[in-house]
Design a protein around this nucleic acid. Structure first.
Length: 508
DNA sequence: TCTGGGGTCCTAGGACCC
DNA sequence: TCTGGGGTCCTAGGACCC
């Protein structure tokens, strides 16, 4: 006997959805870890010239500092005693994991929305779903979060829908709790300003204000026809429903990534084409590395260019086959960049890959073919194990040029073909750690390296560079190579950083 | 010292196919 | 001769979220 499963429109009666939101999380973690900052204004974000605020502590918010505000403006507003800090994502991630584990003990069905935010569905847990029951559970959860994180607090909203739970968690921040009793949804919702609704940003808010719509109650008085006329079918109809508290979006625990991207805003607008090329290569390598670590590959390569005047253009190209090869991505990205006028200077450059598939589904043969098409002139060193084909300056000369910070030895040895895409060309064996920056476990931290993993693919058998932050890069190897030297680190502004110029990186 | 970086979703228009 | 219509894929841009 088989059943056809359908998604039923279940309108919940109970406040069985929690939205948990950690309060000013980045700043709270900093204040937890650095007692001298407690009680003082703390601003976390891009500290350098063009940075923006990620999170301001509540002490800083008093002075009007807000998320997404230019750091320069924050500095003008906040007092002398304010601490300005670069984010330490690894620390935030650890705290996040502690909290998510606690949520997982409350219900198996949790949806993590971001590093500091999650929905919890209590419907299937056997919890007492009365207002009193949910209130008691939420209070206990809040206490456990504060204890487990060493003092980082969370605000919780509990309601019969995601929409109301989310609004509720925001209402009494910080350290707040709002439970919306069944039947009181509209009374709760309608007095609030329209921008409390998810999906109502500055543009939508402005358009609504022009029509005299300021509260969600006002919005509920607008006809569906008007809303669709103003905002299009999807957005218009969505607003119509949300204004009536009609929201049956389920809590979904797993979501598949749709795109992977990396971008960089330069401290000063860049005009130099060579520099732009190099940045494109680094961004491509970063994206490809993340694709591979996620077991993904994509068919569409996108670039994003922001000009000095903040106008932004994108260009995209869709291949027939998915790739996770940084050099292929870089090649296409460069072609796309050549279609854009960069003579006036570029503020931001970005590279992305979308139309993703699990890489396991890809046809290895066609992928290899495609790569060969792109590099027809070059001898495919990959098919030979003749190192002379990729002759290069002696690695010792390269590696000794810049002193390494904390090199760990990498030993040469036999292949580990199982994770290599070109099994006949052994990836170097061994393991190593490259010191790249601040904290273990972050992109900027020491990067553990294992053979066949996280190795940039290179048919030409060239050594290759993967960029990471804080002025350091990690060197990675693949191909018919024997790695003799230790993994080293280099200053990012090293002029030899040309991932697309393999000979300068080959170690044979 | 104006405006980060990682995403998601939607729309509109053109190409192309049936 | 006049001009179909729906569906899908792709590209570019924009709004929005944390």
């Amino acid at each position: 006997m088989s059943y056809r499963v359908r998604r039923l429109r279940i309108v919940r009666g109970d406040p069985s959805i929690l939205h948990v939101d950690l309060d000013a999380m980045f700043a709270a973690v900093e204040q937890r870890d650095k007692p001298s900052l407690r009680g003082k204004p703390v601003v976390v974000g891009g500290v350098a010239g063009r940075g923006v605020v990620s999170t301001a502590s509540y002490e800083a918010r008093v002075f009007g500092v807000r998320s997404a505000m230019p750091m320069a403006q924050a500095r003008r507003l906040a007092p002398w005693s304010t601490a300005y800090l670069s984010p330490r994502f690894a620390a935030y991630k650890r705290t996040s994991e502690v909290v998510m584990r606690l949520l997982g003990e409350v219900s198996p069905l949790i949806e993590q929305v971001s590093i500091d935010e999650a929905y919890v569905d209590l419907a299937a847990t056997g919890t007492d779903l009365s207002v009193d029951g949910v209130t008691a559970l939420a209070l206990e959860l809040k206490a456990r979060i504060a204890t487990a994180t060493g003092g980082v607090t969370g605000s919780i909203g509990a309601a019969s829908s995601k929409l109301l739970a989310k609004i509720g968690s925001d209402l009494n921040k910080p350290d707040g709790l709002t439970v919306v009793p069944p039947g009181e949804e509209l009374a709760f919702l309608h007095p609030l300003p329209v921008n409390r609704l998810g999906g109502v940003g500055p543009a939508t808010e402005q358009r609504l204000h022009r029509s005299g719509v300021r509260t969600i109650g006002d919005l509920a008085a607008v006809s569906l026809e008007h809303l669709i006329d103003w905002f299009g079918q999807s957005h218009g109809a969505g607003l119509f429903r949300l204004a009536r508290a009609q929201d049956d979006r389920p809590v979904i625990s797993e979501r598949e990534a749709k795109s992977v991207s990396a971008e960089e805003t330069f401290g000063i607008d860049v005009t130099d084409p060579v520099r732009l090329k190099r940045e494109l290569d680094l961004l491509s390598a970063r994206v490809a590395g993340r694709l591979r670590s996620g077991g993904l590959a994509g068919r569409t390569v996108n670039i994003k260019v922001r000009h000095g005047d903040f106008t932004t253009v994108t260009r995209a190209f869709t291949r027939d086959h998915p790739t996770d090869d940084g050099r292929l991505v870089a090649q296409l990205a460069r072609r796309l960049l050549s279609e854009v006028d960069t003579s006036g200077g570029i503020r931001l450059l970005g590279v992305g890959v979308s139309t993703l598939t699990d890489f396991a589904q890809d046809d290895l043969f066609s992928e290899t073919q495609h790569a060969a098409d792109l590099f027809p002139v070059l001898p495919v060193a990959g098919i030979s194990d003749e190192p002379a084909m990729i002759a290069a300056p002696p690695p010792a000369a390269i590696l000794s040029a810049v002193p390494a910070d904390g090199p760990a030895p990498v030993t040469s040895g036999p292949s580990s073909p199982e994770s290599s895409k070109s099994p006949e060309f052994p990836a170097p064996e061994g393991s190593g750690v490259a010191q790249t920056g601040a904290e273990p476990g972050t992109e900027d931290g020491p990067v553990a390296w294992r053979p066949g993993q996280d190795v940039l693919h290179d048919e030409m058998g060239a050594g290759w560079v993967q960029g990471s932050g804080l002025g350091r890069v990690t060197i990675r190897f693949e191909g018919p190579l024997t790695v003799r030297g230790p993994v080293r680190t280099f200053a990012v502004d090293d002029p030899r950083l040309h991932p697309t110029d393999p000979p300068s990186w080959v170690i044979s």
